[in-house]
Nucleic acid binder design. Sequence first.
RNA 1: GCAGGGGUUCCCGAGUGGCCAAAGGGAUCAGACUGUAAAUCUGACGCGAAAGCUUCGGUGGUUCGAAUCCACCCCCCUGCACCA
Length: 435
Amino acid sequence: MSSVDGNLIQDLQARGLIAQMTGDDALESYLADGSRTLYCGFDPTADSLHIGSLVPLLTLKRFQLAGHKPIALVGGATGLIGDPSFKAQERKLNTPDVVASWVGKIRDQVSRFIDFDLPGNGAEVVNNLDWTANLNVLDFLRDVGKHFSVNNMINKESVKQRIDREGAGISFTEFTYMLLQSYDFSELYKRNDCTLQIGGSDQWGNIVGGVDLTRKMHGGHVFGLTLPLVTKSDGTKFGKTESGTIWLDAAKTSPYAFYQFWLNTADADVYKFLRYFTFLSVEEIASIEAEDQAAQGRPQAQGVLAREVTRLIHGEEGLEAAERITHAMFSGSFSDLSEADLEQLALDGLPCTELPEGLEQIPMTSLLTDAGMVKAGREVKDALGRQAVWVNGEAKGAEDNMKAHEVFAADKALYGRFYLVKLGKKKNHLLKRSA
RNA sequence: GCAGGGGUUCCCGAGUGGCCAAAGGGAUCAGACUGUAAAUCUGACGCGAAAGCUUCGGUGGUUCGAAUCCACCCCCCUGCACCA
């Protein structure tokens, strides 16, 4: 049995990672006294987790590093129901086979973060469908449902807007979600001696429900701890960009795009994010912050954050790929890229499209819109008007709009095949001549 | 079901017969300044390279002409009634 790090809670506190916890000081000494088993649930609401799940995921890992045993629960059952917590509207149910396929993907993703082979506190992944699939309705209502007060449930902050708001409403199905999640906790307590559940702060109601149910059903004293919702200083939602959600799946968000997302973190958020999303010690982060403050110009923090998190999610290889593209695209020295480098960029996740036929007829606006660089031709037109489109380093203007055949002439291609197109400062794209 | 209010371009929100592709704000994109930041300033912002085309909950109608007027329908909100 590995020894436990008694300072875990203090470290989490220093990182700002504790939103609420049950039994305050009791939990801290409970964790310091021995290796405990804890769990966190991840519902399959899509075919991949996104960075919103990163805080709980990494926190599980922090507990493991401190000597505790983490269980990642994939919600094969709860994913069939839908958590109403702080959701404005009832959600559409996904079909069982869809949820089942998502369960598989989420399980694989989650598994990459925690260590299964640690002696004494090796991680586990469980699926709550295992203990609910064959649950008898009458038994459930008698054994579990009886412990819940509807009066209490409708007063939960998490469902208040659904209860109070005219025209919103909540179905009995979603209303029951809390019972299922609570039952999970009591089951894991019984089966795995799991005595702590962690989750986002929106899960507080569900977690407390589980704490109560475990006491009522098994007389067990268990704990709950919630993590803060990640917010940005400018008030916009964390984890979304104009081009969409930042996913953990490399097929949905390339390591390059992922790296760029973190690199673009606002100064006002970056040190907080370093504490949330990296395993650098709070002291290290403080010294980075101090250095940045002392230095003029660009802070180093975003680079550190992007590197650390990208390595964590996509590994050393993913990070190298991301940095390779970033360097090629933003250093302005793409001309010394080799042919193999260019091919690699496409593989690394630089958006890449094949050049269509009949360029004489195709305006640049449609060409670049179709390639997915922008949403409407107007943006290309605007950019052309400001000399903000470059093809292989050469700025193009409005007069080139109908001259795609000249802009993309065969003799202008790098290695006879490639064109690097840059629109504005940040949009890069690779166009390839078909072979 | 009755009475009243409302549904406008990504969002909020003006517009009540032509001057409306539709004020203003937000978001977004691009430019300047920078650090691939923030703040600020500038431009764009239904679609289209253009000519032009398609919008104001839906369908029909009145009119030379409708987001604006009429009819019917759908949806939302606020009261009242019904369920009790």
